[in-house]
Design a protein around this nucleic acid. Structure first.
Lengths: 113, 113
DNA sequence: GGCTCATATTCCTTGACGGGCATATAACGA
DNA sequence: TCGTTATATGCCCGTCAAGGAATATGAGCC
């Protein structure tokens, strides 16, 4: 059951960008600053939010601090999502059934979206 | 790629509660008000946010408005999650391998952290 | 110890958000 | 048409989050 801090942490586009960066590999604050085009203080604050949400962990490497993703909270998000998955699987099932279970029926006008 | 509106919509606990309610079944505003212990105007505003994020759809039934979940945005969330899934699967794999693939090897000192 | 680089924190201002209240709108029934 | 029920909107206010600038902390180097 992900807590509010996690959601609010991810509600900010900059922070999602940081998280995406860290998915590739851990990075130092400096690298993140450069990649995100944010000021250093601003970046530090975002990192603090991510830290407090448990999304990232820091490792000290000389004067640098290297941030890395912590998979836990994102896994929690996934768990939260689980009950909803049934929902769209149902939609997809219905759609799929219409699309391929009747190969000899003329296709309906393809409700595209 | 879920947009910011979706994340911010879900960042509020009341709104997550509403979404959870709607997972069980569609509900009228009145039912939601009652279930969430929120004022009616407040509920309406939350529903507006959810609507604008695309998370819910409304159907008019006489004077009532019945809200229902739209699976789309949550599916988008799931898609966003996908790249991260590899991350914790890796952790779980590693853990699992250590736990059960070597029943006869003494466990290494377990670089814990 | 002083200096420098890397990062964190503080202060300030601004803008968005949430709640409560009152009110508007819309649909139904008499 | 009028009244009633169901929902949405506007306004006011307090709170909180974000960005910028300046500054503090902390690790390495001389």
């Amino acid at each position: 059951m992900p807590d509010t801090a996690l959601w609010t942490a991810l509600a900010d586009p900059h922070r999602r960008a940081i998280v995406a960066l860290l998915l590739e590999r851990p990075r130092s604050v400096g690298e993140i600053v450069e990649a995100c085009q944010l000021s250093q203080p601003s970046t530090s604050k975002h990192l603090k939010v991510l830290r407090e949400a448990g999304l990232v962990r820091v490792r000290q490497d000389a004067q640098r601090r290297v941030y890395a993703l912590d998979p836990g909270p994102i896994a929690a998000l996934d768990a939260w999502l689980a009950p909803y998955r049934a929902l769209w699987n149902k939609s997809l099932d219905a759609l799929g059934r219409r699309l391929d279970e009747r190969p000899d029926t003329p296709e309906p006008p393809a409700a595209k979206d």
